[in-house]
Design a binder for these strands. Sequence first.
RNA 1: GCGCCUGUAGCUCAGCUGGAUAGAGCAGUGGGUUUCUAACCCGCCGGUCGCAGGUUCGAGUCCUGCCAGGCGUGCCA
Length: 564
Amino acid sequence: MTAPLLDRTREALRAAVAAAAEASGWDIDRADIVIETPRDPSHGDLATTAALALAKEAKKNPREIAQTLKERIEASPPPEEVAPLRSIEIAGPGFLNFRFGDVWLERGLAETLGRGAGYGRSGRMEGESILFEFISANPTGPLNVVSARAAAIGDTLAALCDAAGARVGREFYINDAGRQVRLLGESLEARVLQQLGEEAPLPEEGYHGEYLVAMADRLISGTLPDWWEESDREARIGNLSRWAVDQVVEDQKAIVEVFGLRFDTWFRESTLHESGAVEETLEDLRSRGHIFESEGAVWFRSSELGDEKDRVLITGDGNPTYLLPDIAYHRDKYNRGWGRLIDLWGPDHHGYIARMSAALEALGHERKAFGVMIVQQVNLLRGGEIVKMSKRAGRLIEMKELLDEVGRDATRFFFLLRTTSTHLDFDLDLAVSANDENPVYYVQYAHARISSVFERARSEGIDPDAATLSADLSRLIEPEERVLMRLLVDFPAVVADAAEAFEPHRIPAYLRQLSAAFHHFYHNHRIVGSETEVQTARLALSVGVRQVLANGLTFLGVSAPERM
RNA sequence: GCGCCUGUAGCUCAGCUGGAUAGAGCAGUGGGUUUCUAACCCGCCGGUCGCAGGUUCGAGUCCUGCCAGGCGUGCCA
């Protein structure tokens, strides 16, 4: 696809600066030429620090270099149809500030209107294929709030990378094998027996949550399955575990859907054991020379690949540790054709990154083809106090409770507001508050407000969508209008930058900025009722703004209401 | 001990991969639209960017060392 206007413009300027430097005999890597948006709009539309970067090598005053570059660029400017340069200024220590003709922003608005719901997409990450794995909780209980945060981030990140042109997948990993699942079965057995009036203590490290009581109810209230009476206790535990896992996974699927996200795959660990992929992986590692045996256990020599010590894959009593099937799982992802794997893990897993990276490198994959984002912990605040959570005691805030109390829009918005790597204080009182203290409404309100303006226009027989076709965009000359147009031009780059940096929080930040600019514009200028041609142009601008608000909110999984 | 995250306004946080005078929201305070939604807009108040060095034309951002808080450091998952 054609690159968005801002990307094209930057590229054209970069080329012009590079050519000017080269003609002067200065050597600068094209990629090192930074073309940025000045913080202060009075410094122009775009700026470069190239002269400052060249100062050392050229052994000249940066302002002199800037002067030379300026003259050469003016002598052979970038193509008018991409970057209609109106002036170049030298400022400060040697910045080059570029200013464009009005037509530049008008083209940007035209592009926004032309691409509609597709505006924001680009080809920045074309050719990449990325599989995002997130939530991936043990199927032993309800999803909690950290899972909710990971869900919001993973889903939005995938959407952003998709918009940037990458092929993406969303995957949920179900650890339905191993000790925890067995404990789940044993815990459920105890709950069922208790309800049948028998003395049956919960296993020491079992699951104490109330949800197992409810689950036992469900199991008994129907007729107990045939396998319940099976004499072999092992078989009964196995059946209970499977049954319980299915129940839990169904619940997880349901709540995830309420949260508004769809996984492309729900991958079960057990399939890796059944298919022999676990053994295959071990043999693969062995044939590549990364396996040794010691003290009766099978080890992976991960210390040779950056891990702090070697890791056990098969324990002394012959069972695989969690690591081996997990390596097999990631190996499977590559085998399914994904070029890059991104996992979202909780902070308690950070020590695990080195060994997994080592394993995947041992299997012949590039280190940068595997990445882990640590989603930091969430503190829920109520009345200014941290709500204590404890998994062991069975007291934890479930994702479902959060959604019931706060609702999907506010929950997702709050989780996406902050950088992923920081601990998050989630103020429940603020999130549920339906007043102007709540930042969620600010963006949604801008969208609703524009919708309301359109309703008004239609009541006067004016069709806003038709206005976009006939509008003379050069009638948009007010400063507030130009600010909005510039923000619209920025949008695809904001999306692509957020995707490449894996920083979804940039989207809500941008949307707040855009909303603020619209509220400001709205306050100072009339749309419906202004002079006809101006009215048409302003309606077109509003269509563009509303479209970008909607597109951005869609990335976040937050609704864009017509009225509030 | 070692590893990871964090430390920026009273509170919660941004700061675009090293640039120009460090920004928002909330709280506080004072105003605003008889016209398309006041869940809005405008003003004021508020800063030793944890501390100390270093790198350079330039550091909140990079390097080193401290200080403080959180999490981790299993032949558990």
